[in-house]
C-alpha cells in the first residue's frame, strides 16, 4: 500500500515538473534566460575547472553526460517524414565518425555498412532539428520565415559565420545521397573545425566559435561529434542561446511592451528571468532534494 502511495506521489511530482518545464519552453523570455543561464553556468564552471576549484564537478559532469545519453537512448524522435530515429544511435554515430576521422588522417577512409546505418540516423536527427527550428519560426508572431535562415542573414558580427558553418553541416548532411558523401563532409568539417580550434589565433576563427569553445569545459569531446548537429545540445551546453537570442531580439517589441517602465531591452528581460530562476534553485524544496544526494567531500 505504501509503495503504491509513493509511486503516485512520484507521478504527481513528475507531472507537475513537466508542466513547469513545458511552460518555460513555451515562453520565449524564459527559454532565452534558460539558455543564457545554461551557458553562464558552464562558462563559470569552465573558469573554476581551470583553477581546479571545480575539478570534482567536472568529473561528475562527465559521468552525468553518460547517464543523460544513456537515459535518452531509445527515446524515439519523430523525423521530418515521420521516421523514427534514436539519439543513442546518433551518439554512437558520432563515435563512428570519430573513428572515420582518425582513419582519414592516416589516409584511409573506412567504408562499412554498420557506419552507414549509424550515419543515416544522424541525418534523421539533423532533419528533425531543422523541423524544430522551422516550427519555432512559425510559432512566433510576425516571424513567418525559418529563424535559422533569418538568423544567418543578420549582421551580428562573426556569430553569423559560426552559425552558417554549423548550419551548413546540417544542410549538406540532409542532401548527402550516400553514407560515404556524408562521412566525407563530416570528416572534412570535423578536421577543419579542429584545425581552426587548435590554431587558436587563426584570423578566420570566429567569435562565436571562441565562445562555444570557451563554454565547453570539456574540450576532449571529439570535434566530429560536435559536428553532428543533433547531438550538439548534449555536447556543447548553451548552443540554444544563439537562435533564442535572435528570436527574442526580433520579438523585443512585444516583450518590451509587456515590461514597459520596468525592463528596457532584451538583456534586461533575460537577466530578470534569470533572477527568478535563481530563486527557484534556492527554494527549500530544492535544498531538501539536494540533501538527498550527499556530495563527495571535494565537490
Amino acid at each position: 500500500m505504501e509503495k503504491i502511495a509513493q509511486e503516485e506521489e512520484l507521478r504527481r511530482h513528475i507531472e507537475e515538473a513537466m508542466k513547469h518545464v513545458a511552460a518555460r519552453e513555451g515562453d520565449l523570455p524564459n527559454q532565452t534566460a534558460d539558455a543564457a543561464g545554461e551557458v553562464g553556468l558552464v562558462r563559470e564552471l569552465w573558469s573554476a575547472t581551470k583553477e581546479r576549484r571545480g575539478k570534482m564537478l567536472g568529473a561528475l559532469w562527465k559521468d552525468a553526460k553518460a547517464v543523460i545519453a544513456g537515459g535518452l537512448a531509445g527515446i524515439p524522435l519523430v523525423g521530418e517524414a515521420g521516421t523514427l530515429a534514436n539519439l543513442g544511435k546518433v551518439v554512437k554515430a558520432g563515435k563512428d565518425v570519430v573513428g572515420v576521422e582518425k582513419a582519414a588522417r592516416g589516409g584511409v577512409l573506412v567504408r562499412n555498412v554498420a557506419m552507414a546505418e549509424s550515419l543515416k540516423d544522424a541525418t534523421k536527427i539533423i532533419r528533425q532539428r531543422k523541423e524544430a527550428w522551422k516550427t519555432l519560426g512559425k510559432s512566433v508572431m510576425g516571424v513567418p520565415e525559418n529563424p535559422v535562415n533569418r538568423f544567418l542573414k543578420h549582421p551580428i558580427g562573426s556569430v553569423v559565420e559560426a552559425g552558417k558553418s554549423y548550419y551548413d553541416v546540417g544542410k549538406k548532411a540532409v542532401t548527402a545521397k550516400t553514407a560515404d558523401e556524408l562521412a566525407a563532409f563530416v570528416v572534412a568539417r570535423g578536421v577543419a573545425a579542429k584545425k581552426s580550434i587548435d590554431a587558436g589565433k587563426n584570423i578566420g576563427l570566429v567569435v562565436a566559435h571562441k565562445v562555444l569553445r570557451e563554454i565547453d569545459p570539456f574540450p576532449d569531446v571529439p570535434t566530429a561529434l560536435v559536428s553532428i548537429a543533433g547531438a550538439a545540445d548534449l555536447v556543447i551546453p548553451g548552443v540554444n542561446i544563439l537562435p533564442a537570442l535572435w528570436q527574442l531580439g526580433h520579438s523585443s517589441a512585444q516583450y518590451t511592451k509587456e515590461y514597459v517602465g520596468m525592463l528596457g531591452d532584451v538583456k534586461d528581460v533575460v537577466m530578470g528571468r534569470l533572477n527568478k530562476k535563481l530563486t527557484g534553485i534556492k527554494s527549500p524544496e530544492a535544498a531538501r532534494s539536494a540533501a538527498a544526494f550527499p556530495l563527495p567531500a571535494s565537490a
Partner: peptide, 19 residues
C-alpha cells in the same frame, strides 16, 4: 522525487532534455 525537483531546477540541462 528529489531527482525530479533537481531536474526541474537544473541550469545546465536544456528544457527539451529535462522533459
Amino acid at each position: 522525487v528529489a531527482l525530479v525537483t533537481l531536474i526541474e531546477n537544473s541550469f545546465v540541462l536544456p528544457n527539451e532534455v529535462k522533459l
